[in-house]
Design a binder for these strands. Structure first.
Lengths: 191, 191
DNA sequence: TTCCCTTGTACGTTATAACGCACATATGAT
DNA sequence: ATCATATGTGCGTTATAACGTACAAGGGAA
């Protein structure tokens, strides 16, 4: 089995997490039930832990597993990218509310539809989920070959790995559209 | 080391994933580079794979790691849980727009604040990100010891692992509040 | 039926994850 | 300075993940 050093691939975020919590290896050991020797080796990339022990560690630190596997420190995208109003050409008017963040695997758009305007969308990649929250007007969402009617203040969550679509009512519609992509940790090897 | 059968804990979704793709153990083996014997044991819960091999599998199937670890088939929460108006007692009025989904690791609330009402929130777990989208009124968000002013139609994304807070303007405020937890898979043990 | 191929599982071996303990190096106190 | 405690790393042993091969069971096709 290859080691992290040999493959040059990413190290788990364990060291960062532990440093952040200010715990020693010993404390972390009794907290997680994993020997401190093992914890040390994992931090140094000398060992590729089992998901069982990874789970113990995450549980001990009360963190989700993803907090350990991905690289990527959460960067604050609020300043630079906030309120950017890049608008897609062509059919519908789309503003970027929250740009895509690889850590979250999510992005949010603000979509405006003219009265009775219809927009069809092909199937996205597997595992993609969309959320729709209607801000104003009436909106029909095509999900599983069925149109679901929504009005302002209502929301709908659905899998976007099948063809789907949006259709505004007679007064047009404005809605938030969140895209959730599987997870991003996936883009980097772990050992 | 305990086995899945002994601890009664969750099995990885490998069997489901492979069944869905219609591949045999042999095919899956040469696709992922993991021996078919190992794949079989993992499916039966007789072995707790290393994250290294888990990564190989995910890579072979072109899936994110999260597709293998969590349980939880993506359930459509649109029908049953939509518009549930569970309201927190005490201070602020919160409605659940999108309930927490372990697959997405995300949830969305609809929060209403009375004029000048203020709500402080302690630091959440590491890796938690919040997004705020103002629907109506004026809202100040405390982020990094600094109040950021938002009005209707604006959004703000920030790390929620530090204390933060919300303060409505003189006309009150309504806003969507999205919580992104790292990833999910965290809610269930893996071996 | 018999042959052939594929499915998934069982066995024996090797590689290594995980453990407990001991050690070297701090950092602090008296 | 010495003593004390705690840090992180190295070593030897055990448990087990991972491999390769061999095997029993289930189809087809002749």
């Amino acid at each position: 089995m290859e080691t992290l050093a040999e493959t040059g691939e990413i190290t788990l975020k364990l060291r960062d997490v532990r440093a952040a919590s200010g715990l020693s290896l010993s404390k972390a050991s009794e907290l997680t039930g994993v020997s401190k020797a093992m914890l040390g080796q994992i931090e140094r990339g000398e060992s590729s832990p089992t998901i069982a022990t990874l789970w113990k560690i995450a549980k001990g630190f009360q963190l989700p597993l993803s907090a350990l596997i991905g690289t990527s420190v959460l960067r604050d995208s609020s300043d630079a990218n906030m309120f950017r109003t890049v608008t897609f050409p062509g059919s519908i008017e789309v503003k970027i509310v929250f740009p895509f963040d690889p850590v979250l695997g999510a992005e949010t758009f603000h979509v405006s539809l003219t009265p009775n305007q219809c927009h069809e969308s092909p199937a996205h990649a597997a595992g993609v989920t969309e959320e729709v929250f209607v801000l104003d007007g009436a909106l029909d969402v095509l999900r599983d070959d069925e149109w679901v009617s929504l009005h302002a203040g209502q929301g709908l969550r659905f899998s976007a790995d099948v063809p789907h679509g949006y259709r505004a009512g007679q007064t047009g519609a404005m809605f938030l559209n969140m895209h959730h992509y599987g997870q991003t940790a996936a883009s980097e090897p772990v050992t």
